[in-house]
């Protein structure tokens, strides 16, 4: 209990004003760096104001004074208890070749489940087209895919890559933006306890399986491999990694057999989700470039064998990146 409130205010007001001034500077210039002496003073002012708030809290009147001190303490608290990492220089190279694959491996179980889901969808889609040719009209996501594969191959081979003349760059940009948008959506659907992520992965698997079955049944396996592998070897794993992130979010929400509270579970995976989705974005930018500038060229412009080898080469590099890169080094 404060006996003489007026005297208390008179004595402390100067410190509150000083703290307010520091906070004003901090708000106006978020990047403002304090010297050690300034930091010590700031900490002292925060502790003194906090102590004042504790004393005033026991006093029934002066509601507005308490609100004023609470606002000062709340603003100072966020600055004093800095929870951002110290500003070490960010290295994109280290991040991509160390942090990203390390994070991926940490949640390999979620990736495996995502892979199984998309594979189940592919088997379902492929089976549907194989056993019921009419299913193709219902399943295929684009009008172009509903046509005969043989006709499409004939048309694209005769065009000699001119069908994308003067629109390759915009096509690549469109692919990148669209695929990244889909990946973010797959991640975000983790908020449905992972159900939405599972559904989107399964549906995409159906499309993939149906297209593959359709081309294989039409005897266009080599065209299919040459068309899909160069970009698909990166794009499909990227979507599965987005699914991995979505499932991770979903499992954190569910929190099986763990006494950790929801907030802490989500806090724990926050950084890893960010790493995974940024990694996915990088992969999809590359896949977009390849799809637009390479995948769309067919024989006789580029031989299918070369495209298939290129696709497998990329897939090998991706597998190496995700399975080996960053092993045995200290985490950044």
């Amino acid at each position: 209990m404060i006996i003489d409130l007026d005297k208390f205010i008179e004595e402390e007001n100067i410190f509150w004003e000083e703290l307010e001034k520091v906070l004003r500077i901090s708000d106006a210039e978020p990047g403002h760096k304090m010297s050690l002496e300034e930091l010590k003073r700031f900490h002292y002012l925060y502790e003194r104001t906090s102590a004042g708030l504790a004393r005033i809290s026991t006093f029934s009147a002066k509601q507005e004074l308490r609100e004023y001190l609470e606002s000062l303490v709340a603003r100072a608290f966020a600055n004093i208890h800095e929870n951002r990492r110290s500003k070490t220089k960010f290295s994109p190279f280290k991040w991509f070749f160390h942090t990203f694959p390390t994070t991926f491996r940490k949640y390999i179980k979620a990736f495996t489940i995502a892979l199984l889901i998309i594979s189940a969808g592919a088997i379902f889609g492929g089976g549907a087209v194989y056993f019921d040719t009419d299913a193709k009209q219902v399943i295929m996501p684009f009008e172009g895919l509903k046509k005969s594969p043989t006709e499409r191959v004939k048309k694209e081979e005769s065009s000699k890559g001119t069908h994308l003349e003067n629109r390759k760059s915009s096509f690549a940009s469109h692919l990148m933006a669209n695929n990244i948008r889909v990946s973010i959506f797959v991640l975000a659907l983790g908020m449905t306890f992972g159900v939405g992520t599972v559904l989107v992965l399964f549906i995409n698997g159906i499309y993939l399986g149906a297209v593959m079955a359709d081309y294989i049944m039409a005897g266009q396996t080599k065209f299919l491999a040459g068309w899909l592998l160069p970009h698909g070897s990166i794009e499909i794993p990227a979507i599965i990694i987005a699914g991995q992130a979505g499932l991770l979010l979903g499992s954190a929400l569910i929190g099986w057999e763990t006494p950790v509270p929801l907030g802490d579970r989500l806090r724990k995976i926050g950084g890893d989700l960010t790493t995974l989705i940024f990694g996915v974005a990088v992969l999809l930018v590359w896949a977009g470039i390849i799809e637009s500038f390479f995948s769309q060229y067919h024989e006789p412009v580029i031989s299918y064998s070369f495209k298939i080898v290129f696709g497998f080469f990329q897939l090998t590099l991706l597998v190496l990146l995700l399975s080996i890169s960053g092993r045995g080094k200290q985490q950044i």
């Binding site: 600055n79 208890h81 800095e82 929870n83 951002r84 950084g271 989700l273 960010t274 989705i277 940024f278």
Partner: peptide, 15 residues
């Protein structure tokens, strides 16, 4: 009541 970490900003905005 703390300041935001970068990952928090990314997640809340992507979602």
């Amino acid at each position: 009541g703390l300041n935001l970490r970068f990952s928090q900003i990314v997640i809340r905005n992507l979602l």
